[in-house]
Amino acid sequence: MTTIAHLVDDTTPGGVMRVIEHIQRDADMARLARHRIIPLPRTGWAVPRVEADLIVSHLSLNWRRLPWLMQLRAIHSGTPMVHVEHSYTAAFARHNVARMGRFSTMLRISFSLFERIVAVSEAQATWMVEKGLADAEQIEVIASAIDVAPFLALHPIQKAPRVIGAFGRFEPQKGFDTLIAAMRASPRQDLELRLFGDGGEREALVALAAGDPRIRFMGHVSDPARAMGEVEAVAMPSRWEAYGLVALEARAAGRVLLVSNVDGLRDHASAGATLVRDGSVRGWTAALDGLDTPDMVAIKRARVDASEATHWFAECWERLVETLLKDKETAHAA
């Protein structure tokens, strides 16, 4: 049976590990190959010799990692290698990269070491091509996926939403400061904002809420589907987001979904999400104030699309694996 080794250097709870866990548990992915997860430290690492038919990197790319990647490529010159880019996007670069030329050079060199680069959204892939980070032929778009069955089991919203949920780590990326400020500026006293999660910005976010009784901090979520069942709409004011698993979950649950007009969140708009094009506090206040009776046709379409996510995830990976292994056989025969 085909063996795929997945290299991971971020095993903290979050989107990357949720996708990795899905790969391990999903029946379709299990039929495709035997998946080995290889955790790696972010510093002080030795280059392992990986016994696998295909190596998939879920690693964080940077200049320090680059010599290590070169050694990995040299040791496994006959093994196809794929990199899944979970993090870097156009909006990430705008907010975090001071020297775009140097950053782009690092990505171009790193990407060149792999047979394929997996973009987790169409928006991310478009950015890669436009910036010349990789050729279009090298890029495969495979949207991230997890098991959404617990969310599909929830009853979809059928009335104007009043309880709004925000899910994720309390860190600048998620834009919860903007959402809280928008809620405080809203004149609607019938709305309630529940923030699920924790993180380094908790104290600042609590201070920003200033005791507004409409804003509640719910703490860490051990059961995301149960938490989703407590809300009627989901807001994602992220400053950058390669894909956005919470958006997939919200669509599967039949919740009204408001997302920032950035990166992979744009991909969800074609499947039922509402883009908040003005990402300012004023723009998000208008979006919250405009919450009304949902379009049930759009909600149903969003649920159907979300229900097929795991199928398409496995099918895309199957096509990619078959192509790379066939190319490997052809190269060996030559």
Rank of each mutant, 00 (worst) to 15 (best):
G219S: 13
H220A: 13
S222L: 10
S222R: 11
S222G: 14
S222P: 00
S222Y: 05
D223I: 08
D223N: 15
D223S: 14
P224L: 03
P224G: 09
P224Q: 00
A225H: 01
A225C: 10
A227G: 10
A227W: 13
M228V: 07
M228N: 09
M228T: 04
G229L: 03
G229S: 11
V231A: 08
V231H: 08
V231I: 02
E232K: 02
E232I: 03
E232T: 02
E232L: 01
A233Y: 11
A233P: 11
A233V: 07
V234A: 12
V234M: 14
A235N: 09
P237W: 05
P237G: 06
P237A: 08
S238L: 09
S238D: 09
S238I: 12
R239C: 14
R239N: 14
W240T: 12
E241L: 05
E241K: 00
A242N: 05
Y243P: 05
Y243K: 03
Y243I: 03
G244H: 03
G244E: 07
L245R: 06
L245K: 07
L245W: 04
V246M: 05
A247Y: 02
A247H: 06
E249S: 14
E249M: 14
E249H: 08
E249G: 15
A250K: 04
A250N: 03
A250D: 01
A250T: 03
R251D: 12
R251M: 15
A252V: 06
A252L: 07
A252P: 13
A253Y: 00
A253N: 09
A253S: 11
A253H: 08
G254P: 14
G254I: 06
R255M: 09
R255W: 02
V256K: 10
V256Q: 02
L257V: 12
L257K: 11
L258D: 00
L258H: 00
V259S: 04
V259P: 07
V259E: 05
S260E: 13
S260P: 08
S260A: 09
N261T: 07
N261P: 05
N261V: 03
